[in-house]
């Protein structure tokens, strides 16, 4: 009996595998409308297009988007590449029309300096904070240091309590 159950399990598992596999294929599928004949150029065009923002959908690259404008931009990228432009020239072509915005990777400029530098600044600041916090917890005497010292009366009181406690313990 158990082998039947096992078989069903295997079948289901293979189905899941097949689904996952084809899902993956689908995700990698490129819109078929245009393609360059030279696979190396096509590869370059796709890599480049992955880094170009679709201006209509904003957080997708033109490679992922099926918006009309993305389609046009893809064909422009392919056109430029087959015309012999370098990757940088193609990017420049698009930036001159749409600004730095079309690049999904913002370039390092004065305007974007915060964007690039701030994570590191935050990391350092956070590190300093954590170190200081942990240190202060390690020696709690540091916190007591700024308390006022006991007055003579308090001292006497404390002595009395400690003394009586000791006596009580010995009895």
């Amino acid at each position: 009996m158990s082998w039947i159950k096992w078989k069903a399990g295997a079948w289901q598992i293979s189905l899941v595998f097949a689904l996952v596999f084809f899902w993956n294929m689908q995700a990698k599928a490129v819109f078929v409308e245009e393609r360059l004949d030279d696979p190396r150029l096509e590869e370059r065009a796709r890599n480049l297009a992955e880094g170009i923002r679709c201006l209509v959908c904003q957080n997708q690259s033109i490679m992922d988007s099926n918006a009309d404008l993305a389609k046009d931009l893809r064909s422009i990228v392919r056109e430029r590449i087959s015309a012999g432009d370098s990757d940088e020239e193609v990017r420049q072509f698009l930036v001159s029309r749409y600004g730095d915005w079309v690049l999904l990777n913002p370039p390092f400029r004065l305007r974007t300096i915060m964007l690039w530098v701030f994570p590191f600044v935050a990391l350092v600041l956070g590190g300093v904070f954590v170190v200081r916090f942990l240190r202060s917890r390690q020696n709690p005497t540091a916190e007591n240091a700024n308390l006022a010292p006991l007055s003579p009366e308090e001292e006497a009181e404390l002595e009395k309590m400690l003394g009586s406690g000791k006596d009580g313990g010995r009895k």
Binding site: V56, D72, I76, R97, Y98
Partner: peptide, 11 residues
Amino acid sequence: GRVGIDFGVYG
């Protein structure tokens, strides 16, 4: 739509 792209039109 090529002239549009030259003008930076996106919508």
